[in-house]
Design a protein around this nucleic acid. Sequence first.
RNA 1: GCUCGGAUGGCGGAAUAGGUAGACGCACAGGACUUAAAAUCCUGUGAACUUCGGUUCGUGAGGGUUCAAGUCCCUCUCCGAGUACCA
Length: 848
Amino acid sequence: MASYPFKEIETKWQEQWEQRGTNLVSEDKNKPKYYVLDMFPYPSGAGLHIGHPEGYTATDIVARYKKMQGFNVLHPMGFDAFGLPTERYSMQTGIHPAIATKNNIENFKRQLKMLGLAYDWSRQINTTEPNYYKWTQWMFLLIYNSWFDENSNKARHINELPIPDSIKDPLEIEKYKDEHRLAYLAMIPVNWCEALGTVLANEECDEWREKGYEVERKPMRQWMIKITKYSQRLLQDLDLVDWPYSTKEMQKNWIGRSDGAEINFKVKNSDNNILVFTTRPDTIFGATYMVLAPEHELVKEIVSVEEKNKVESYIKQASLKSDLERTELSKEKTGIFTGAYAINPATKKEIPIWIADYVLAHYGTGAIMAVPGHDERDHEFALKYNLPIIKVVEKENDDWNITESAFTDDGIAVNSANDELSINGLPTDQAKDKTIEWLESTNIGSRKVQYKLRDWLFSRQRYWGEPIPIMFFEDGTKRALDLDELPLVLPEVSDFKPAGTGESPLAKVDSWINFIDKKTGKKARFETNTMPQWAGSCWYYLRYTDPKNNEIFADKEKEKYWMSPDGIDLYMGGAEHAVLHLLYARFWHKVLFDHGYVSTPEPFKKLFHQGLIIGEDGRKMSKSLGNVINPDDVVSEFGADSIRVFEMFLGPLQDAKPWSTDGIAGVNRFLGRVWRLIIDKDDNVSADLQDIPMTSEQEFVLHSTIKKVSEDIENLHFNTAVSQMMIFVNEFTKAQIKPLKAIENFLMCLAPFAPHISEELWEKLGHSESIFNNPFPKYDDSKIQKKEIEFVVQVNSKIRARMMLPVDLEQVEYEKLTLTDESVQKHIAGKQIRKVIFVPKKLINFIV
RNA sequence: GCUCGGAUGGCGGAAUAGGUAGACGCACAGGACUUAAAAUCCUGUGAACUUCGGUUCGUGAGGGUUCAAGUCCCUCUCCGAGUACCA
């Protein structure tokens, strides 16, 4: 027999909450708001994973607790339902992705409800519904219709872009605008996967490669978004948010700010200049050669006649290599001399210009000044091709052999002087500044900040994504749809296979690529690319504040009510989104902020990552290992309250923790003990529960429990909160007659963790109102103060005795009392006390 | 390679500002109840030695600071995550 009838009571209360509308919320100016959000799931065909309830329970506990504390709590859920797995399922089965998505969402919802999560389902969103993606499209167009004003460091409407007087032709003006839009079309090499029939984002490539798919580089016309314009703000605004340190670090690394200089090198016997970026302008005297990326545009112009063939064949070879091959497979650096020379502006010496694929075209200027003495990569290359290595930075008090290895740390500049500039003897940071001053005064170069962050590739050749609401005309012009034309709804198709031309399945739909535009009367075709899956998740948290609005994505007042002053109060989700989703969403939010649509510069005030739940065998759960735990099975065997409490009890929320069947049985036993504390064998409220005063020991345990549970919920330390509740139950199980008041207070502590059993027992105790309508109990500090404690007596820092003593005595009294102890006497006997260390309420230490 | 985390009984994990290491749970052992089992309740449980009162050792390894170190400092080993020629 089950330890308590969880099946009936869980079903009963889930129905009750739904009927009563317990979890519905609306704006209430009389209450402080609290917005707690889970990263919404992708509704896969496999259903809920056992890891999902971990983060969801954590936020549910916080939501229920905050509600009991008098907050107006927004705790919504929805589905990030566009995505490749569904589209692939449709290709195989012919079932429309919208149907598959609907079924998957129904299953997910059933499972989420089964866990007793207090979501306001009236606010549910689904990124694939036209009335949702209408606004995703609208926001894309907002980005498209924006340019970045460097002076005010923010986005402005494209109509406010100053057009230079020299540009008169309307087509030229359009072109000028297009160049400045935050969303633009570009012909760029992308990661093309033939088998999937789509391009992939850089970050998606490895994932598919691991699964055995081939990904190649191929230039294609793509939509790009200038997220790079926000590099600095994305970096500095990390100071505004309360996020895990490591996540902030990852974002910082991803944005990758480098401070340095851009320097122009003249090409000998030519009008061409090679612009390089360097973080070490102080080493310019040590630049003994230059390297261009194979794709660099100047390569063709400067290559000498003699070297032309060799250079061309090298470029061809490099272009065939993927990024992966360029890095991992070729540890050995390769390169080739162009036959051309540049003039080092500091030394005025001729230095050879090489091409090598260790220089990346897409970072900096795609060219470098090579300083083999002080850069490991340049050093390796110089050794291989026998290029000169000069020491221009010295390590203090050390004779570094520069031929053997590069010295890359800061040091003191040497061999670095010409007629106008000498930095000899200066430490690196000063040498940098002085060199930059000279570069700027001579117009050779300038200070420059460089970021690693690249523009965001925003188009995918898929059917199951948001259509990009732009149409193209035969004359080469294009038009973005107006708000009254949105949403641009995906056309019905029955064949989800890619077009085979590198375009999405939409390219096969005649009504999509061959129609007459109603507004202009011109023959037109829609963009056939769709948006990446990240798009819908960039703003879903805003839609929850006003999910049904058809005039705007969210009413300004409602957005302000829930998002002010610092954004979402708690955002819970996996660390796998530490960079991409969180960076894209922050960017998206900032564009909305610049246009005045949202009230905060950052969307997520506090972020927390729940850890992975791994298999019972300590390995990651996977079908092939056969160690997958299904939430449906667990709920049916132990109940939702057990799975909730167990996942919280397993260990610290942010840690990876192994599942344990014995462990959940233990938690289920604990809930059974709670049940039997109140309900007797005959299913009645126990006669042992009486309205009697607590003993001081019971008061101590109750108030400690209230304190511990409330503090632990605030700090997301749920595992220790559960421990404390177990201590409570152990203590009160001991008592023959149980004080009712204590038990009721305890139930309120337990309620956020195990809502069903708490509601049921609360009702059985004669309450007609939901337990969640009660204020969370407060503890009385005076009840937690003990009058007597176990006092530790040490001799020479070793524990020799423990004595029960009053807490409020003077040191001398403790000395007197503790010195009477036999064991203490034994260890002190015959020796002299040199020193006494006294820690109030804890210990006394005699040094002899 | 670099950047972050982490290492505590047989297991998951506790231990506010350095001050009783191992809370709580699991597993295990013994007992009560039972014809028996399950369930439940009670007791014990870091290791070694022990004259059963204790003694010594013990938080990945080695050093250091301190009356006192899981906690602070240095060096190292192993594990996990992210990133990868970013000039």
